[in-house]
């Protein structure tokens, strides 16, 4: 695993590449994982004295914590040795979550082209156009 986490921007461009590669080869999976980032951190609780908080120190955090988002193409075994395995990660600060996920959603919508498009063939095209016109006007 790469020791250094990517910046949010680099992560998203890396994800675009991953999705493109999966699409070019015709098959393959991309795994995206998100989790609270707790590595090497001591949690700050609002009141350390009460016993309940001692049992569950992660319930009452005094301040928001970052989350970590990972992406991999899941290549294992011999392909890992060949250097085909790609594994990227980024840490998203609490105040950047909103912005990150909107861009993240755009990247996924653009990259995941293999999925079923909305089936419009069964509907009557004339009706759809009329409805659209009314809404706009």
């Amino acid at each position: 695993m790469a020791d250094v986490h990517s910046s949010n921007e680099d992560f998203l461009t890396g994800l675009i590449k991953l999705l493109e590669a999966a699409h070019k080869s015709g098959h393959g999976s991309i795994f995206l994982t998100q989790k609270r980032y707790t590595y090497g951190t001591t949690m700050k609780t609002e009141s350390d004295s009460s016993s309940e908080d001692g049992l569950f120190p992660d319930f009452n955090l005094s301040e928001p914590v970052p989350i970590i988002v990972r992406a991999t193409n899941g290549k294992g075994k011999e392909k890992r040795l060949e250097g085909e395995k790609v594994k990227i990660s980024t840490i998203v600060e609490p105040n950047e979550i909103e912005g990150f996920f909107t861009r993240y959603a755009d990247v996924c919508k653009m990259g995941m082209q293999g999925m079923k498009k909305r089936d419009r063939s069964k509907r009557k095209k004339g009706k759809d156009k009329k409805k659209g016109g009314e809404k706009k006007g």
């Binding site: 609270r36 989350i67 998203v92 979550i97 996920f101 909107t102 959603a105």
Partner: peptide
């Protein structure tokens, strides 16, 4: 896809407390 990633975002907010 869009809606699901948006819900990942809301869950992300919960992860970040």
């Amino acid at each position: 896809i869009g809606r699901l990633i948006a819900s990942l975002g809301t869950l992300g907010r919960e992860m970040a407390a």
